[in-house]
Amino acid sequence: MYFYALIGVGLFSVGLYALINYAHLLRKILALNVMGSGIFLILIALAKRTGETQPDVVPHAMVITGIVVAVSATALALTLMLKLAAETGRAELSEKDRD
C-alpha cells in the first residue's frame, strides 16, 4: 500500500521539478497534471487504511472531484497558452515581458 503512495510522492516531485525547470508552457501544464496524478495516487493508496475488506470511499469521491477540477484547470491553462502564443508567437514566459 505504501508502495503506491511512494510512487505518488515520486510523481509529485517529478512534476514539481518539471514545473520549475522547463520554460515551455505546455511542459509546465503537463507537469502540473503529473503532480495532480501523484496526489490522486496517494489518496487512492491511502484509502486502504484500515485493512478492512471494504476500502474507504471518501478518498475515491475526492479523487473524482479532483479529476474534474484538474480537467477544467487544464482546459483553462491550454486556452490561455494558445492565446498567449497567438499574441506573442511563443509559448513561454520570458522574464522581460513588460514594456
Binding site: 514545473l19 508552457l25 509546465k28 502540473l32 484547470a73 483553462l76 491553462a77 490561455l80 497558452m81 492565446k83 498567449l84 499574441e87 506573442t88 514566459l93 515581458d97 513588460r98 514594456d99
Partner: peptide, 13 residues
Amino acid sequence: GKNALTGAMRYLL
C-alpha cells in the same frame, strides 16, 4: 494583450 495574458498565465501556474 501580451501583458495581461502573461500575467494571467503566471498567476495560473
